[in-house]
Amino acid sequence: MTASHSGFCALLRAWRDRLSPADAGLPAMPGRRAPGLRREELAQLAGLSVDYVLRLEQSRAKNPSPQVVGALARALQLSRAERDQLYRSAGLLPPQDGTVSTHVPPGIQRLAARLGDVPIGVFTAGWTLVWWNAMWSALHSDPSVLPTAERNLARALFGSGAVHGSMFAVQAERGQDAFAASIVADLKDAVSRYPADAELDRLVRELRAMSDDFAHHWATQTAAAQHTTDRKTIHHPEVGDILLDCDILLVPGADLRMVTYTAAAGTSDAGKLDLLRVTADRTADALP
């Protein structure tokens, strides 16, 4: 396909101006001259540099990758039709049916944004992280510093890349082996439903080659075990060990998993979450 750089730039600016910071889960800042997002805010939400977003809007950066366009579409809370329009304006084919969707519906993003006090991460069927809030970054470390392809839970568990050592250590109450097995089972289920997805196939082949544990689970796991509430201990460098309830909420019609962490009110762990909330607020306040 042929890119229309002026069209891509115009869409990017128009949709950035359209999105309310509140709907994106950003705090209201005094002295805003426009109702939409600032470039710095879009860059933060998409996990891109501010300079790169500026160059995209000024048509000085051409031929953005599918991963970049997908991240921008999610950050701008585009509908499927708008997402496809953005892909085409960048000279790319939109994501095809039969592959793992990375699209997060705007309603899901608005819902998650309004739950800003809770660490939330949204994952694809292949356990790739495609959306997170500031509390997630405060709890687990900032995913935006990782390459897009590395933001995958299976890679964090079994791989040897950047993500493997980036997240703070997490211990599942029902056992790490059972948790790992459930992730592999989910991937096996995803492969059966998305056999044409090249990225998912590459992920599985790489993990089978590099991890004996993954290969063992892949060979022995026959069906995805139903996810239930688990309690996770996060070994956090700032607040120490924090024990939280971890719930996985499925998004009907979108094949997404929304992972949330909560603590009972009045507990020491809830107090530690409050401390992390201060960190998250400081990060938001540090935006230019």
Rank of each mutant, 00 (worst) to 15 (best):
H140F: 06
V104Y: 13
R80M: 03
I242C: 04
L78D: 11
P94E: 13
L54I: 03
E238R: 15
V204A: 03
A112F: 02
L111R: 14
A43L: 04
L12I: 01
Y52G: 06
Y194P: 08
A209T: 09
D212C: 00
A28G: 08
T279L: 12
W132A: 05
A73H: 04
G159P: 09
L129S: 08
L244C: 02
R16D: 09
D201W: 00
T279V: 14
D97I: 01
L26V: 01
Q226T: 13
E199C: 09
M135Y: 13
D269S: 14
D274E: 15
H235W: 12
L11M: 15
V191G: 01
R282A: 08
A209K: 11
S49Q: 09
T102K: 11
V163T: 03
V184A: 10
A280D: 07
P237N: 08
L115A: 09
V122Q: 06
G91N: 06
P143D: 02
I183A: 14
A22F: 05
T283L: 15
A149M: 11
P94H: 14
A286W: 08
R151D: 01
F214K: 15
A224R: 15
Y261H: 15
K188N: 00
S59E: 06
D97F: 00
G107K: 13
D212S: 06
R39L: 07
S192P: 02
A254W: 11
L92Y: 08
G36K: 01
L72P: 11
A10N: 10
A270T: 01
W218I: 06
A224Y: 02
P143E: 04
G240I: 00
S6P: 09
K62I: 01
L92T: 03
R231W: 02
I248D: 06
T260V: 05
E206Y: 02
Q226G: 02
R33K: 10
A10K: 12
Q221R: 14
T229P: 14
W132I: 07
A73T: 08
P105G: 06
G165Y: 00
Y87R: 12
R110F: 07
P106G: 07
A223I: 04
R33P: 05
L11E: 09
G266H: 03
R231E: 00
S89T: 07
A209G: 12
G36P: 02
A190D: 04
A10S: 15
R60H: 10
H164V: 03
T267Y: 08
E173D: 10
R83I: 00
Q77G: 00
A24R: 13
S141G: 08
P106K: 12
L111Y: 03
A134N: 15
P143Q: 10
D23R: 04
W136F: 12
P119Q: 10
D255V: 05
L72N: 14
A280R: 14
G107Y: 06
G36C: 02
F123V: 00
I108Y: 07
A172D: 12
D247M: 11
G126P: 05
R38G: 09
A61N: 12
A90I: 05
D84N: 15
I183Q: 13
R193F: 04
R114T: 03
R282C: 03
W136I: 00
A81V: 06
A284R: 15
Q77A: 08
L139T: 03
G47R: 09
P64F: 05
L86G: 08
G126E: 09
N152R: 12
K232W: 14
